[in-house]
Amino acid sequence: MIFAPGSAVRVRDDWPERRGRCHIRTPHYVRGVEGKIVRHLGDFANPEDLAFARPAATVPLYHVRFDARAVWPDATGDELMIEIFQHWLESA
């Protein structure tokens, strides 16, 4: 399933770096935070596997928008827009 633009999503509150060696492209500050799908940017090989030269499945990549103050109440910006892979997103 591909998330449609405007869909409410939540970034998984998962911390693989605490379980061992890994490489992830989902910034720490956005884990567990709700946002909105801006658009599907295309499908790209999963960097979590590429980083270890393992066979990498192709995963949908989205631009997702967040309220900056939902991340930091003291944020001086308004919005954050971040590229996030499908397997890090769940419906909110």
């Binding site: 492209r25 989902t26 928008r65 930091w72 919005e79 590229e83």
Partner: peptide
Amino acid sequence: VRDPRGLLAEWGTVLPDTVKLRVVDSTAD
């Protein structure tokens, strides 16, 4: 990502409060 208006001020860039500031974190492809 957290204090972009403070950061912009170091370059002398001041946005009016009416302008929405969107920070794009370039994380992937």
